[in-house]
């Protein structure tokens, strides 16, 4: 942990965070928040959290920024400044954050020193994961083995949360919405001539298969390198979002329409739960993969765990891909699927 590298990045992060909420333009605010996420991703790489950094680069700096763009495009980008009337809220905000900061500054005295190898977090549970992962699961990437095996329950329900978020967006915008068509911010589609962005379209068309191939690699190679179902799924979803941005929403919807996306989101989660249920049917605990050696030909219990983790990761990737697409499509068209960014 190199503080000469760490301190400037953290300072930049704090500056970006402050400006993201101070800027008077929502689009600018979203871009600064994207930069903030990207700096955060550098910080995590420096701390050795490569999987977290990968996820943040795909999710925080990538998809989140696009979602903000979609929402701002559908509403308005101006932040009205009113001189009076917010004094009470500002005072309350300062008071609450002051109290939180005071408590946490005070508590930091009791924390173990940063990156201390003898800290409680580093000495109790994690040595088991680090020393046993090869022997028990044959997966060298400890983050993957903890994610999909040791804490498989946790990950299954996190996937369910993502799925539920997609359903909530559908209910809010697709089913509950579209009663009054909101005014559309008319710059992008109206001013842009039809031939003006043929370079962007060409590059996107050539690039998309490679992005998708890379996403599949990220899913499949998550056992040995940073990556896995969540990252690969987000990259897959982002490739369709890229198509929707550079062409229009119909282009992406023709590839995977709403029905197919919902079907994929369901089947991914069912694949995860199904693997767990299969273990249960064979007589072991839910998500106790080593029992799958009975039906997988030619593997022992350890290899069965590794293979089942791949299945689980594929399920996660499919669900995340479909849900990211669904959220973007609904946000950018306000639930009508008519016109994109």
């Amino acid at each position: 942990m190199i503080w000469q590298f760490d301190l400037p990045i953290l300072t930049l992060i704090v500056i970006c965070g402050a400006f993201a909420i101070l800027v008077k333009d929502l689009l600018g605010s979203a871009i600064i928040f994207g930069a903030y996420s990207f700096l955060m991703c550098l910080l995590w790489t420096e701390m050795g959290a490569v999987d977290v950094a990968f996820t943040e680069a795909a999710v925080g700096a990538g998809v989140s920024t696009v979602l903000f763009f979609a929402a701002v495009h559908r509403t308005s980008r101006e932040v009205r400044s009113r001189k009076s009337g917010r004094k009470l809220y500002k005072g309350l905000g300062l008071l609450a954050s002051g109290i939180l900061g005071g408590i946490l500054f005070y508590a930091s005295g009791d924390f173990p020193g940063w990156a201390d190898p003898a800290s409680p977090a580093a000495t109790h549970l994690s040595p088991h994961f680090i020393t046993r992962t090869i022997a028990e699961t044959s997966v060298p990437n400890i983050v993957t083995s903890v994610l999909a095996d040791y804490r498989g329950f946790d990950t299954m329900f996190e996937t369910a949360v993502v799925f539920t978020a997609g359903l909530a967006v559908l209910i809010l915008l697709r089913i509950g919405g579209c009663r009054t068509a909101g005014p559309v911010w008319q710059t992008a589609a109206a001013i842009r001539p039809a031939y003006g962005d043929s370079i962007i379209r060409f590059v996107t068309r050539q690039l998309t298969p490679f992005i998708q191939l890379f996403a599949l690699y990220v899913v499949a190679h998550g056992h040995h390198s940073p990556g896995g179902g969540f990252q690969g799924g987000v990259i897959l979803g982002a490739s369709f979002i890229l198509l929707a941005i550079s062409y229009d929403l119909n282009m992406a919807m023709n590839r995977i329409n709403e029905k197919a996306a919902l079907l994929l989101a369901n089947s991914g989660l069912l694949l995860y739960a199904g693997i767990g249920l299969l273990c249960l049917l064979l007589g072991a605990n839910f998500l106790d993969y080593s029992i799958l050696q009975r039906i997988l030909p030619g593997v022992d219990g350890v290899a069965a765990r590794s293979h089942a983790m791949l299945g689980v990761e594929i399920g996660v990737a499919v669900t995340v891909m479909a849900i990211v697409m669904l959220i973007y499509n609904n946000l950018v068209s306000n639930g009508t699927y008519e016109k994109g960014l």
Binding site: G60, S64, V143, L172, G182, V320, L331
Partner: peptide, 30 residues
Amino acid sequence: PLPHVLMLTAIVVSVGTLGVALALALRLYT
């Protein structure tokens, strides 16, 4: 690796909550 796993899933869930929050804001705007 344990905090990495917990926070990795938290980041992915945060994009879900972000989507729901923006959808709510959009509905209020309409």
